[in-house]
Structures are given as structure tokens and as C-alpha cells.
Amino acid sequence: MIRTTSLRFTYQNTNNHIFCFPDIDLPPKKDILILGPSGVGKTTLLHLLAGLLPSKAGDIFIANNCLNRLTRRQLDYFRGQHIGLIFQKTYFIKSLTLLENLTLRERFSKKKIDRYHKEELIMHLGLSDLQNKKVYQLSEGQQQRLSIALGVIHKPKVILADEPTSNLDDGNCIKVISLLKKEAQICKSNLVIITHDQRVKSHFNNHIIL
């Protein structure tokens, strides 16, 4: 469950420009697509929802926890357990293999290691033969799938994806969206996708336009 009320944010060095975001009320296991052109604060909203940025006003409730009321340490812990982030660019720990990256993400969630889920996930994403490869040895497509795996490996309550399809062709765009929706369904998570990519629109019933 995600609920935001009167959410506002301002960056210190932007002449006090205030980002005002519409309220979101998303029941458990539901998806939402947040669309908007560049510069309207899509990534800012995503980072607010992930607890990476503190809001100037308004409240964010995720799984009945008000993020604004959590201490820094509690927020880190909460993020580790309940938020799954998928970025536009792929980020990994370069010194580790694909499998080690996934295990590391799982460990930081402080949840019980679910080997079955991990194996299933690796199989679903077609990464079975690449488990012991260093991440820099993977192709872009494989890295994109690993990025999705890292966002869902710990079965988060909320999956937040930032422009996951912007660099992909039409075929791969559909594949990635399908994968995200499928994994969100398996993990019983809310899926929030922010994008300016209009191709994605048709795959979601629930939209917010910034």
C-alpha cells in the first residue's frame, strides 16, 4: 500500500522552485504508471518514495509506515526490507559476480534467504548460465534483467522503477514491462514505474501524469 498526501519538495540550489506532487493512493499489489516530460520531478518523486530524499511537506505512507517519522537508521532499514529500486542505468558491485550481487542485496534486506525464490527468479529472467560471471562481462540486456532481479530478489512491498525502458527498442521494452509486472505479481508488491516513454502507457490502467 502506498499513500502520499500534499507532497512537496524543493532543491536548495534551484531558486526555491517547489515541486508539488499529486496525491497517490495505491492499494496493495496494484501497479501505477507515472508519466511526465523531463524536469517535472519524476525521479525526485521516486526518490521521495524510496526515502532517499526527505520531503519538505506532506506525508508518505508505505505499508502503514510514515517515512517522514522514521529516523535515518530506521529509514535505511525500512528501505532495505521493503523497497526494491530499479534504475534507468544499471548499477552493480563490479567486483562481484551476478550471483554474488543478488546474494548481497538479499543479505542487506535482513530477510531470511530464500534459495528457491532466487533460483526461480534467475531462471525466469534467463540468467541461469551467467550466475558466476562478473557483471561487467554481461551484455546490456543481461544487465537490464539483473537490475530487475536486484529490485525484486528480497520480495519488497514496493517496486520502484525509474525509466526502465527508455534505452530499449520496442521489443525489449515490452519484454521488460512484462517481466516487471510478472515479478511484482509473484512478490505481491506494488509496482510504480515513472517514465516519459509513451510506449508503456498502454500496459497500465492506472496513470498519473505530472
Binding site: A50, L52, R72, R73, D76, Y77, F78, R79, G80, Q81, I83, L85, Y91, F92, I93, K94, L104, R105, F108, S109, K110
Partner: peptide, 13 residues
């Protein structure tokens, strides 16, 4: 720096 930031998104303090 980016890897360390990534670890923060994983929940590392």
C-alpha cells in the same frame, strides 16, 4: 561512490 550509493539504496547505513 556509485557502488557505495547503491549499497545505501540496499539499506546499508
Amino acid at each position: 561512490k556509485q557502488e557505495l550509493a547503491l549499497l545505501r539504496t540496499y539499506g546499508a547505513n
